[in-house]
Nucleic acid binder design. Structure first.
Lengths: 213, 213
DNA sequence: TAACGACCTAGCCAAATGGCTAGGTAACGG
DNA sequence: CCGTTACCTAGCCATTTGGCTAGGTCGTTA
């Protein structure tokens, strides 16, 4: 068969989304959904087993939020012929930039995407284009224009922010994490700078919007 | 026809979810999806026009987050025979309790629901049961057990919290909202009490988790 | 080896916040 | 008319925070 179907793997923890995606994609005979995955490990397994043309993935597949980015990186590194299309629930500058930096070929937002855009996007990606959904492009442009480049938070910083989000004071966090108050303040200062925030409340909001908590 | 199909209206801004839901439901010939809506107004119109047996609704259909609850209230008041099943993206004690208080017959979480649970849930709802998804039940129980009953935030309080989330100080918010600093602090004190929070960062986190921002 | 990043600690001070009491108005429903 | 709710304002004071400078270790990488 000279023009075989595009072989697609879907990774999303949500059944409804998986069924919906499959249903939309399979209206076009050029697309074949050959596997579904609902966890980070399953994604790797599925890609290893099927070596799909396209991986459509929701980065949020479990509790460990940053794991999704690592999976994108691993797939694009080990399988250069597999294109990765990120299908996100929410739009966060940091996540978008990180995903693209790690080799994602497209980034669409579930709530914004229209049915026909999915098929077009996949074809465009296979032609080597990078597909950015409505709003995503602006976000990236903004990120490039901004003097502050997107630095990603360290694990430790995220830990501290999680405690802050729970309403703990510096002192309480220090006790909970077995380190000094100074260190808590140090991590928060760094997180503030990286996120462009000036108050704890804003740090929490941005981290929350970025899906880091 | 003695045992006609259950007539269902789906309200969700996300195409993928709508297609997925329709696809899952229509595997069972007893269910017929007769309309889809993607905005609050469209939900009311669709219910007015079709008077469905069941309305499956995602409360988050637009920028005005609390509008979803009002829609539930309106539908259950005006059409007592129409059952309402809320299908949420996230799980928030306040939203769950408020939705049930306003007449919702069920509350499921998209990420947790399994394909077969949807059909079972709808049938149960039609039998007069109240269907609560995995985790939702515990949340409600917790809410009942808690001395603090779930009070909902006023519009003004949410306004203030949104400014806090942007990292503004009390003084800056006062200027932005044309009211005194005292009033800002007053609203935040009330919001703290209602949310059970003790720090601005926690207020923002809870409000954010509740989808209020 | 040197440089780097992530991590940890200390102290300072002005500013912001949390928690409190104690008032006020306007609108709405019983 | 009265109670309730949302909304607005004022002041007090202890605590927390933001923003800063100035150090340190450890492991990896160039």
């Amino acid at each position: 068969m000279p023009n075989a179907s595009t072989r697609i793997v879907i990774a999303d923890r949500n059944v409804i989304t998986r069924v919906g995606l499959r249903s939309i994609l399979e209206r076009n005979p050029g697309f074949a959904v050959i596997a579904e995955a609902t966890s980070y490990d399953a994604v790797i397994d599925a890609v290893d087993e099927h070596g799909p043309d396209v991986l459509i993935i929701d980065l949020d597949l479990g509790d460990d939020t940053t794991r999704g980015l690592k999976v994108v990186e691993e797939v694009t590194e080990r399988y250069p012929t597999t294109k990765v299309l990120v299908l996100a629930n929410t739009l966060s500058e940091m996540i978008v930039v990180e995903a693209l930096r790690r080799g994602a070929n497209g980034y669409l937002c579930k709530d914004d995407v229209k049915a026909d855009e999915l098929g077009k996007g996949i074809k465009a990606i296979q032609d080597g284009e990078t597909v950015l959904g409505k709003g995503v492009g602006n976000l990236v442009a903004h990120s490039l224009g901004s003097s502050r480049q997107t630095e990603h938070l360290t694990d430790r910083e995220i830990d501290v922010i999680k405690h802050v989000a729970k309403g703990l004071s510096t002192k309480q966090i220090a006790v909970a994490m077995f380190i000094s108050e100074s260190t808590i303040k140090f991590h928060l200062q760094n997180a503030s700078r990286k996120l462009g925030a000036h108050r704890r409340a804003e740090i929490v909001h941005r981290a929350s919007a970025a899906g880091l908590l």
